[in-house]
Simulated assay, not measured.
Amino acid sequence: MKSFKDFEITPVIENFVGEKINTAKILDKEIVVKGYKIQPSKFENRGDRLDMQIEYRDEDRVVFTGGKYLIQMIEKVPKDGFPFKTKIIKNGEHLEFA
Rank of each mutant, 00 (worst) to 15 (best):
M1G: 15
S3I: 09
F4N: 08
K5D: 12
D6V: 00
D6M: 07
F7Q: 13
E8H: 09
T10C: 00
T10R: 12
P11I: 02
P11R: 03
I13W: 03
E14S: 08
F16T: 12
V17K: 10
V17F: 08
E19G: 11
K20Q: 14
K20P: 05
K20F: 15
I21V: 14
I21Q: 06
I21P: 01
N22T: 02
T23P: 02
T23H: 10
T23D: 03
A24L: 05
K25H: 09
I26R: 01
I31W: 00
I31F: 00
V32W: 01
Y36I: 08
K37M: 04
I38H: 09
S41I: 04
S41G: 07
K42I: 12
F43H: 10
N45D: 15
R46V: 12
G47W: 14
D48V: 04
R49I: 03
L50A: 07
D51C: 12
M52V: 06
M52D: 05
I54N: 00
R57Q: 11
D60V: 01
R61F: 04
V62T: 10
V63T: 13
G66V: 13
G66A: 15
Y69Q: 13
L70G: 08
L70S: 05
L70C: 09
Q72I: 03
M73R: 12
E75M: 02
V77G: 00
V77N: 02
P78Y: 04
D80G: 06
F82K: 08
F84R: 00
F84I: 00
F84V: 00
F84S: 04
K85V: 01
T86F: 03
T86H: 08
K87N: 02
I89R: 13
I89S: 03
I89E: 12
G92M: 08
H94Q: 14
H94N: 08
F97A: 01
